[in-house]
Design a binder for these strands. Structure first.
Lengths: 299, 299
DNA sequence: GGATTTTACGCATTTCGTAAGTATT
DNA sequence: AATACTTACGAAATGCGTAAAATCC
């Protein structure tokens, strides 16, 4: 058993068990990969992959169990390298942030700007994805930190911290009837609604608000992206329900925003990361700042 | 970075940072070990060991942090090997049980006998140690399962299950005054007492019982070992307070046992093992049987 | 001066790459 | 026929062992 065999197993997960693709990723010839897998399976004494003829199609139960340990080894190996790099120079590196569009555009800009000032040597990768994909990106090492509003699955490998509480708002053109008077669930429900897709940006809280109510929302358009919602609200398709922070009085001066905090429960933006994943110091600082800045209202 | 370098780091922890002893343990020459360590530190880019001249004396902060990851890798590597061996033949192997004398002699015999019948191919290593050493044996891989009564430290890496509740008993020669009449804390305290050492076999519960009481125990002899206590009780040194199950009506017919369940809180024998450590199937069965057998009174 | 670690160099082993062979779709 | 995996063999790289030098106590 050696580390390149472990690495090979990890990569085979990603390449749909293709030896040739794995070889390419590892920058060695395919025959070498084939032999290394044989050697490893020989050492284990049992096949780790189901085969249709020569082609690998799936993992055996033993293989699946062993892959868990393989992933643990890979995680630890990456941590060692990250620790070493961080120790040599804790001001340079990369930070992969996976988040949703709304957080990326309306919550993170200021924190990231402050972070850039402190760590100009850190390259930031912003990775947009749906909330359910975010966790997967953490597990596959494609992201260091995930930031989103919707519930992150109960996962013992995950650390989750709440960092920001916000409310939804209704937006509409200036001359819209809902721009004046009291906003109630019933009244809101009397208009065509545009809001986030299922699983995005507190959509579950919108559902919750109308769960007990007699009124039902007529959602004519749902999108993952606040800007898409705004666009169609401007075209007169109806009333948008968006995250309060996504309304910008300057840019959106043609729209009216009405607070919905009395109608829809408050949403919490959360930070999640793998407990087992070593985060460089600047990554830890980024999280700390996010937690503190929010509590100080420094947004 | 490769697995033998990882193994080297693990072994250096055990050899007090001696390269020559590490080489011996790894069955290679010392110069090879020296070079591998240099290569690894070179790859990391920073020293992992403090040195007085050439001699290694301690680990650097970075080294200490990296050792955690090294241990995780070793654990996973061992798990892979255990998984493979278990899959090939789940009826053969070894089981390291670390426990205290009292559990080994008075609690475990029947469960282990039953286990032997089911798994004649499994070699059992019983390792006697003090309760505080037990956990250490788990962490260093010297034991798979630890069984003891005293509290096991709060340790996120540890799984702990209660498997058996028992009470203490007082033992004394047949003609002893305490052999008749009611047993109270005050009366018990009026005699010289022999019992377990601190940290052994529910000693903490004995302390607890007398904590609130006016009476104080006059402990003239304490031992880790029930048999030592019995021996000196027979010699007339005083009254022994031992685990109830350690009194055998046949063998100890020259002694009288008096139940103390109304005076001393009940003690719980616990099973502990590392969450991250793969236990062969027979090991998992051993634990399951222990938990079930006790609940069925099948002792 | 004895024990321990480092350095130098040749040899053994491992692993890769090329190329040809075999199987699968 | 094209794609994907396996086998065979020579070449490169890696790592060990022996031996000698350096350093510590």
């Amino acid at each position: 058993m050696n580390l390149s065999q472990i690495e090979l197993l990890r990569i085979l997960q990603e390449t749909n068990f293709s030896l040739s693709k794995a070889a390419e990723k590892m920058n060695i010839v395919q025959s070498a990969v084939s032999r290394q897998l044989q050697l490893f399976e020989g050492e284990i004494g049992s096949p780790l992959f189901e085969r249709h003829g020569k082609k690998l199609t799936a993992m055996t139960p033993l293989g699946l169990r062993i892959i868990e340990e393989v992933n643990a080894i890979n995680q630890a190996k990456n941590n060692i390298q990250a620790l070493a790099a961080d120790y040599l120079d804790s001001n340079h590196g990369v930070l992969h942030i996976a988040t949703t569009h709304t957080q990326a555009k309306y919550f993170l800009p200021k924190p990231i700007l402050r972070f850039r000032e402190k760590y100009p040597g850190v390259r930031i990768y912003m990775d947009e994805a749906s909330p359910e994909q975010l966790i997967n990106k953490l597990h596959t090492g494609k992201a260091d930190i995930a930031i989103c509003t919707e519930k992150v699955a109960d996962d013992v490998y995950l650390a989750v911290k709440s960092c920001y509480e916000w409310h939804h708002a209704a937006i509409m053109p200036k001359n819209h009837p809902l721009a004046d008077g009291e906003v109630t669930l019933e009244r809101l429900a009397s208009f065509s609604i545009l809001t986030y897709s299922f699983g995005f940006t507190g959509r579950s809280n919108i559902e919750k608000a109308f769960e007990k109510s007699e009124s039902k929302l007529d959602i004519v358009l749902s999108a993952a992206d606040t800007d898409v919602i705004k666009t169609y609200v401007r075209l007169g398709l109806g009333v948008g329900i968006i995250a309060g922070m996504a309304y910008d009085a300057t840019i959106d001066s043609d729209l009216v925003a009405r607070d919905l905090s009395h109608l829809i429960p408050c949403s919490k933006t959360k930070i999640a990361y793998l407990k087992n994943n070593y985060l460089p110091l600047y990554g830890q600082h980024f999280i700390d700042e996010l937690l503190q800045a929010v509590s100080k209202g420094n947004l």
